[in-house]
Computed example of a mutant assay.
Amino acid sequence: MTIRTNTGPAYRLQLVFDAGPTMSMWRPLLRRLRQSLDHDGPFEGATVSVLTADGTVRGRQVEDDRLVTLVLSDCSGPQWYPGPAGERWYETLRSWARVRPVAVVQPLPERMWRRTALPGTPGRVHAPAARSANSGLTFTAYDGTPHAGADSIPVPVLEPSSVWLENWFTLLGTGGTEVPATVAFIPQALPAEETTSPARLTAEELVLRFRATASPEAFRLAGHLAAGVPHLPVMQQVHRSVETTPCPSHLAEVILSGLLRAVPGPPGTYSFREGVASVLLRTVPRSSLSRTVALLRRAEPSARRPLVAAEASRRLR
């Protein structure tokens, strides 16, 4: 991406990469984003920190009166939801937003943000001065919706594109500026943990719920992923075979759908919830399924374990 910036003061950038369980596929984006910001952004230096699933931030912490923070996250890991990890992370995020500019770069397309912990509201945001801390921003929603409360702090949520980033840079560099933005609010305290869970739904209900909201590409991909072991490298291999130009957001739709649950292992290790794979496989034509199974079987000699799901083998008998 090419970013146009107005001349103005140079800042130091703290780029925070969320290393939670759903973020492995976005590591290439981190590299591209840092390269673009180093080359085109209004920054004279940058550090990279890592946000872990337990809500802690690791890496060298720099204190500078010119520091601004960008968090690259799909806002879907456990540290974004009520619980000990969430309390730890939101306390850190609030402490930053009180004293400096902070924004979240969301790799998912805007239509998917409502499924995350930080959906945001579109409107216009006003900064009273250059490099205003988030606590000094004023936000007006397009639909007139009141924000989350007097003690909550607005945080711009950005797509990783030049237009969104340029608007934020304008907000940083010019006092009295108002720009279009999607904004989420950091509450003073997190709500109680949710009692509803995908685990309470049947396999058929989970698949029907996903089909009602998913893109056609994501739903087709989910059926093919059910043919294999749902670990991220295997899922990416199947994705490349199903789509000529695979879009990471389609795979992200499946991972965030509730059809899968994280299991012990390296980041990106999942299993389908009980009965879901069987339901999904019934949505895939037999000829297409056989091609996916053949692909996985060719890859099996280099794998430590079988890559083809037992359900898929049974369906092809």
Rank of each mutant, 00 (worst) to 15 (best):
residue 28 P to D: 07
residue 89 W to F: 07
residue 91 E to I: 04
residue 313 S to N: 07
residue 316 L to K: 10
residue 317 R to S: 14
residue 304 R to H: 07
residue 124 R to K: 06
residue 70 L to C: 06
residue 286 R to M: 13
residue 305 R to C: 09
residue 61 Q to H: 11
residue 5 T to Y: 02
residue 73 S to L: 05
residue 151 D to A: 15
residue 172 L to M: 06
residue 182 T to V: 13
residue 143 D to M: 12
residue 235 M to Q: 01
residue 154 P to F: 08
residue 62 V to L: 12
residue 4 R to N: 11
residue 182 T to L: 09
residue 208 L to H: 08
residue 161 S to Y: 08
residue 44 E to N: 08
residue 312 A to Y: 05
residue 70 L to A: 06
residue 278 S to D: 15
residue 93 L to M: 03
residue 301 P to D: 10
residue 194 E to T: 13
residue 299 A to L: 13
residue 182 T to Q: 13
residue 125 V to H: 04
residue 17 F to Q: 12
residue 9 P to H: 10
residue 96 W to Q: 07
residue 72 L to W: 00
residue 196 T to N: 12
residue 215 S to F: 02
residue 206 L to F: 05
residue 23 M to R: 06
residue 224 H to Y: 08
residue 74 D to T: 15
residue 103 A to V: 13
residue 117 A to M: 12
residue 143 D to H: 11
residue 199 A to Q: 11
residue 74 D to M: 12
residue 146 P to S: 06
residue 118 L to R: 10
residue 207 V to T: 01
residue 237 Q to R: 12
residue 225 L to F: 01
residue 32 R to F: 06
residue 186 I to Y: 03
residue 126 H to Y: 12
residue 21 P to W: 10
residue 172 L to N: 00
residue 54 D to L: 01
residue 277 A to K: 02
residue 100 R to E: 15
residue 6 N to L: 07
residue 200 R to Q: 15
residue 13 L to G: 03
residue 53 A to R: 02
residue 56 T to A: 03
residue 124 R to P: 00
residue 179 V to D: 00
residue 32 R to C: 08
residue 105 V to P: 01
residue 273 R to M: 05
residue 282 R to P: 03
residue 58 R to K: 13
residue 80 W to E: 06
residue 156 P to S: 12
residue 229 V to C: 04
residue 46 A to I: 09
residue 315 R to Q: 14
residue 32 R to G: 10
residue 133 A to K: 06
residue 161 S to W: 08
residue 65 D to A: 09
residue 274 E to G: 04
residue 142 Y to C: 13
residue 213 T to M: 07
residue 33 L to R: 00
residue 6 N to A: 09
residue 200 R to K: 14
